[in-house]
Design a protein around this nucleic acid. Structure first.
Lengths: 228, 228
DNA sequence: CGCTTACTTGAGTCTGGTCAAACGGGGTGG
DNA sequence: CCACCCCGTTTGACCAGACTCAAGTAAGCG
């Protein structure tokens, strides 16, 4: 899934990397408003990026999975304007943000990769925006579950069984921009249509094709990707 | 508003730049599904990025204004997954996508700038996503108009009068993820509250503070930015 | 003058929200 | 072992925000 490194790039990464950080399920990795000195790459586990309105309403923006970077916005633009929370235990690779420009000077290939990763995130956000703006509740839910499942599968992230996505309905609601109650009723419709099944804190994808067809989603359409 | 170039960077940009493209109001600059060989920077005018669902529903993702890049996703990831249309006559600076990696090799400062620009776009999308997911119709409209107005002002883009935003209600509806009719009624509420006024194909901001307060939006919070 | 485009407005419907209550499994203290 | 609690999920009743349909106005243009 990931492209190979040049030897010298690998050497540089070793020096760029300042350590590993292990975080627990449920803990907050980065907080909105912070000026973090760090930049991370996800090595294992997964989590989500979110923003809050002043009155506490929460919107989940996207999920972070192995190979994704977190904190790039903070590193480049100065201040984090979203938070990140772990959905499972996560292992992060830690970089110093001050070394970032050094990477751009010495390793244009890696610099290019970072831009590639940022562009890919942008593309996912575009799709999520389309979903929130123009898809109905059931289309949105179908898209989201297909999307998460596809991404998780492509990086080998798995819950108990191969097709399982371990997530609470509250998280799904906050991603879809729906209330918890309506999310529950929507998920029930997907279950009735035999597209998914729900088992104890997680969703099992029963018919990926069906979900994609229902939501009008084309799939990830991704080739080999860089890893940092 | 924009940071200064180094001399050598300026030289390189001249060679990187392969020409200028002038497009009319209403014309489509880039089409979803295309493998464009070009990458653009907006020199003047403005437009919007959008995606369509198979059945024709349209969602406007964000607006492009002077200093923004368009087509970066296509250049890096292979295929455009959104389209771009001009809202006014636009002048674009054209680059060859094949030269992009050369830029990364020879001018890390410019490469860094491109990533900076991509990160900034990501941040705007995050905010729009929060809006679509968690803000009510009137809050969304207030946020959108304040947002467009702030951005336009910071790059010196103006319609007839200094506080005017020239846009149709259909475009606003497609950005907010609302129907045209409901958008109209929502705008009317903003007018009744004396936050804006509407005049013939455009909106005049009467009370920016009021719009920001209503939507719970903090403003752009941007410093000096790079330009390519 | 008739046509088109953009904006308005009203009526009725439906999707999704809110409130309230209940269920069920896992963990804990007695 | 059992009572209790907590969290996540489920359900029903009712309400409100947003959608659709339909019609009408106003300005611009050939």
């Amino acid at each position: 899934m990931f492209r190979d490194f040049e030897d010298q790039e690998l050497d540089f990464i070793s020096t760029f990397k300042t350590g590993e950080l292990s975080v627990e399920k449920g803990s907050t990795v980065l907080v909105e408003g912070n000026h973090s000195a760090h930049l991370y790459t996800v090595l294992s586990g997964w989590g989500f990026r979110y923003k809050l309105l002043p009155d506490g309403r929460r919107q989940i923006l996207n999920f972070v999975m192995p190979g994704d970077m977190i904190g790039l916005q903070g590193s480049l633009l100065g201040e984090m304007q979203h938070s990140v929370e772990a959905l499972s235990p996560m292992l992060l690779c830690v970089f110093e943000r001050d070394n970032l420009f050094g990477l751009y000077r010495k390793h244009p290939g890696l610099a290019f990769d970072i831009t590639w990763i940022a562009s890919r995130e942008e593309r996912m956000l575009d799709e999520n925006l389309l979903s929130l703006g123009r898809r109905s509740a059931i289309e949105r839910a179908a898209y989201l579950l297909a999307f998460i499942h596809s991404r998780a599968k492509s990086v080998g992230l798995k819950g108990g069984s191969p097709n399982e996505v371990a997530i609470s309905q509250q998280h799904i609601a906050d991603t879809l921009g729906l209330s918890l109650v309506h999310t529950n009723k929507t998920i029930r419709k997907l279950i009735d249509r035999k597209l998914i099944s729900w088992r104890d804190r997680g969703c099992e994808i029963a018919d990926l094709e069906g979900l994609m067809k229902l939501s009008g989603w084309e799939g990830l359409r991704e080739d080999k990707r860089p890893l940092l």
